[in-house]
Simulated assay, not measured.
Amino acid sequence: MFSNNDINFEALKRKAYNGRWATLEDGIIPLTAADPDFRIAREIEQGIIEYLKDGYLSYGPFSGLPEFKKSVADHFNKEKFGSFSPENVLAVNSAAQGMFLIAAYVLSPGDEAIILDPVDFLFKKSVETAGGKVKLCPVDTITGNIDFEQLAALINPKTKLISICNPHNPLGKVYSAEVLRKVAEIASAHDLWVMSDEIWSDIIYDNRSFHTYSSVSEEAKKKSFTVYGFSKSFGIAGLRIGAVLCNDEEILADFTEKSNFNSTIEGVSTLSQIAGSLALERAKPWYKEFLKHLQSNRDFAYHLLSTSEIVTPNFPEATFVLFPKIENGLSSEAFAQHVLQQGKVAIVPGSERWFGKGAEGHIRICFSTSQEILEEGLNRMISSF
């Protein structure tokens, strides 16, 4: 189901944008944007067709279709130790939009937010777009561990928000309930909001358990938002569908109002919400096979890169990206440019632009493709030096 023969390269070259097949010259292998190379589950495809058969695409409820909200709440409660009701869920246009809306809700111009370093660039961008100032809390690029002393030291009267990425992109770290409780204790002591981006929480290896942030303590539940999306685990990035979850219904109602979701100014395509519900209710068998394939790719890529002498790979507990350390003295940008020009492989440099200052000296490699493509890409990268 996930071999080279299952990839429609013609379709990818027409449709896969964001640094992938449709944006690159022929002959270049993209191991870049975190988006699967495989077609979506048949259950999602057939369910969308079924939904369209009566010919109606009417307005849905402003906060989201009841079936969508229920399927997201059930998924978190069954798989992630959550305690959400459908009323705790707001449908949004992607996890990324959720992050931006939360920053806008929590921060006033000049307020400060603490984010991890390194971490995906959207954390910084969402804070700055809301007029806030970013404070970076270092994360160990090998272990993924948060520097809690530094986290506490960054807090001052202007601090309003701590944002975490769990599982962590690009380090692949899954934060334990114990670590999350420490974040909650610090946030609660200073009356801070916490945003937990959990878009990667379905892509977790070795049967490791995952605790959604608000599940770990009463403090965590009290003043937090959780962000979720479907693009990583179900490959429907183009449908722009995600969710914001909050255990406090009054807070979520206020958030929904202030984010303009109580009118037709905002709102999410009903078709996208149906796809999200189908993913969680019917496509789990496909997803489980996909996860097995990804774990096999992770192991394969780790072992291949471990003997390369050019980079030292990390061993992600989650996500389908690797974040190897460069060992040949090149900067992240120079390494990525060299591999693109000499090896015809596109990778993401660990530059400040994409992941923050702490990412320098690393590259990010996406492995949500066939093993054949992955092997060819990694061998090209290694032999280009």
Rank of each mutant, 00 (worst) to 15 (best):
S85K: 13
E87K: 05
N88K: 01
N88A: 04
V89R: 06
A91N: 05
A91G: 06
V92A: 03
V92I: 07
N93K: 14
N93R: 14
N93E: 15
N93V: 08
S94V: 04
S94I: 03
A96D: 08
G98S: 09
F100K: 11
A103G: 03
A104S: 15
S108G: 09
P109Q: 12
G110E: 10
G110L: 10
D111R: 00
D111F: 08
E112H: 14
E112S: 14
A113Q: 06
I114M: 02
L116K: 02
D117T: 06
D120V: 14
F123E: 06
F123I: 03
V127A: 02
V127Q: 05
T129N: 13
T129D: 13
T129L: 11
T129H: 12
T129V: 13
G131K: 07
G132I: 07
G132T: 05
G132P: 07
K133Y: 12
K133W: 08
V134W: 01
V134P: 01
K135V: 01
K135L: 12
K135A: 01
L136R: 14
L136C: 07
C137N: 10
C137K: 01
V139D: 00
T141R: 09
N145K: 14
N145L: 10
I146V: 13
I146T: 05
D147R: 01
D147S: 11
F148P: 00
E149S: 14
E149C: 08
E149D: 14
E149R: 14
Q150A: 13
L151R: 11
L151K: 12
A152I: 10
L154R: 09
L154F: 11
L154V: 09
N156D: 15
K158F: 05
K158A: 10
T159R: 05
K160F: 05
K160V: 02
K160Y: 04
I162R: 02
I162D: 00
I162G: 00
S163C: 12
S163Y: 03
I164N: 01
C165Q: 08
C165M: 10
C165T: 08
N166P: 04
H168Q: 08
N169R: 10
N169V: 11
P170T: 08
P170K: 05
L171S: 11
L171V: 12
G172K: 12
K173Y: 08
K173R: 15
Y175R: 01
S176L: 11
S176E: 14
S176Y: 12
A177F: 07
E178F: 02
E178T: 10
E178M: 03
L180D: 01
R181M: 09
K182E: 15
K182S: 10
K182I: 09
V183D: 03
A184C: 01
E185D: 11
A187H: 02
A187P: 04
S188N: 14
S188M: 02
A189T: 08
A189M: 10
